[in-house]
Design a protein around this nucleic acid. Structure first.
Lengths: 327, 327
DNA sequence: TTGTATGCGTTATCAG
DNA sequence: CTGATAACGCATACAA
């Protein structure tokens, strides 16, 4: 910067002002400075600027598994919005390990990042104690227990109810549910929606028709196998995510049956291969990318301490009807 | 830090030394300092440290599409190795847009990041001119034209040849190829391997049996449709990636045929759903995660200016035989 | 409108 | 082994 100052025949202060768009600079001097910048290819040092301004213009996203396509598409939305707002995106993989969560969260305490986006459904331990940074944290997709941090996502219960209504509308009365792991918030919300959907259709709930998996294909397969071993198996099944729905279809195939002929199957998420699978999956589409973008927008507003940067953001979902549920 | 110094009754210089693990500190003073640190929850400011040391302890990964599972698993490997080496990972989505590439690459010039990992197959324009940062750039998966930057990946030609050898070994003599977009390096390498594989099996190449797609499912579908419309269609097809292989299988299905009964199909990459698809896909497995990790390790060595931080790293691939190719 | 001076939080140099 | 101090590059308060 001192070079630019010399080249343009001004002080570094003026260069700084010109570069930050201060109105206190003559058009003419600004022009000289910009010329010098172009000539030398100079660029402001973000570390020095950050040190001075006490901000990093960086945000951190905590993800349990970057490799999971669901999360990576949320990341895409975050990145776009972050770039648009002049932020860079750091990504930390937690693998659900509290120690890693804490290590990454440390970046918020040190000032390495200005904000945090949680895609992993919980606050890192050290942040549970320390409430000083609540204003710089938002969650996406999955709510955080405690209600301290705002969430951006869909109405999971309503979406689950919509899926069940769809199956009931097809004439099914025995509708099973392959739920996620117990204790998980999404599991609870979708389970609640499942129950509400049954009620709305005038169907009596039957605890035996509910089995828990862990959101993986194999777990969906065994949950469905258990359902099929029932004296009176369900004629339709709503699964808490698409992976388990695929597992359910495999379980059918293994015993020589198939979806939707023998059992209708619906999933949740509309992952990339949901529409490509055989049969294509009926599912709930979440606006993943937009969820990421909205989360970043919210975080940006909170960091800037904008007044309206309030609570949760609920985005619309869509029921996507495909062959797996329709005869 | 000044607080710590006061608490421990030493100077900031000593605190700094203790915190950086300098041997020039008494065990006793170090203990006092560490106690003060624990008590206050103090953490070093990375911006100030970076400004002073002229390093950011951050690296940037340029990806064309974070949402793509192939890339996101490479990211996983990068993140793990980066964390292990004390680096944070920034992710920049380029969407193949040169302007975005340049904007992100700027972070290398400003010192915001210490190194760059390219997963998008090419150097951002401004870095093509400026060779000053060559020592801080590595590529993964896809080689960069020009040979200036070292690549971490598999031997794509050999892998393609192995896939073709597999199909030939099954007795096929008319083996088609659904290639990637023309001009793409991976396309060229795999196309070359396809040719080599045919030659090794004593099969004469036939230009008509080669169609180009763009690595998407629909493009694979139409490429395969064209192949099937030939007077004498191939009895086996090697596709340059799994998405196009899935498209090829769909093309078969549309005209009432199926894989592998009518045409054997092999893909490339072993993406997440390759093993789950119906039929499960025969494909080439790339060690994506390890590729990411090795790339980061290489970059780390280069940044540290370690002597042995030389050229390309070639990792082993594996031919995964599944039902799509076997009768 | 511009320049001077100071401090952001660290680390490295140089004395002691 | 420890302390004082300069410097990293920038942005702002204060003067002019």
């Amino acid at each position: 910067m001192v070079d630019i100052a010399r080249l343009a025949g001004v002080s570094v202060a003026t260069v700084s002002r010109a570069l930050t768009g201060s109105p206190l600079v003559t058009a003419e001097t600004r022009e000289r400075i910009e010329a010098a910048v172009r000539q030398t290819g100079y660029a402001v040092n973000p570390l020095a600027r950050g040190l001075r301004r006490q901000e990093a213009r960086q945000i951190l996203v905590l993800v349990p598994d970057i490799g999971n396509p669901f999360f990576s598409e949320v990341l895409l939305g975050i990145e776009e919005e972050a770039a648009a707002r002049g932020f860079s995106m750091l990504v930390g993989n937690t693998a659900k390990d509290p120690a890693r969560e804490d290590r990454h969260a440390g970046q918020l305490l040190t000032g390495a990042v200005d904000g945090l986006i949680l895609v992993n459904g919980r606050l890192p331990p050290r942040l549970q104690r320390d409430r000083d940074f609540d204003g710089r944290i938002v969650a996406v997709s999955e709510a955080i227990p405690g209600g301290r941090v705002p969430v951006v996502g869909i109405d999971n219960a309503a979406a689950a109810a919509a899926a069940v209504a769809h199956l009931a509308g097809l004439g099914h009365r025995r509708i099973g549910h392959v739920a996620g792991p117990e204790g998980n918030i999404l599991t609870r919300q979708r389970l609640a929606g499942y129950g509400a959907g049954l009620r709305a259709a005038g169907i009596e709930a039957e605890p035996d028709l509910i089995r828990h998996g862990d959101f993986t294909i194999p777990s969906g397969e065994s949950a469905m196998a258990a359902l099929l071993a029932l004296p009176t198996p369900p004629t339709a099944v709503f699964c808490s995510n698409d992976e388990m729905a695929i597992g359910a279809i495999r379980a059918l195939r293994i015993i020589g049956r198939e979806a939707p002929r023998d059992v209708a199957v619906a999933g949740f998420d509309d992952i990339q291969f949901a529409g490509t699978y055989e049969p294509p999956l009926t599912t709930i589409r979440q606006p993943r990318r937009r969820m990421g973008a909205e989360a970043m927008a919210l975080l940006g507003r909170r960091i800037a301490a904008e007044p309206g940067a309030g609570g949760d953001v609920t985005l619309p979902f869509a029921l996507v009807e495909r062959r797996s549920s329709v005869r």
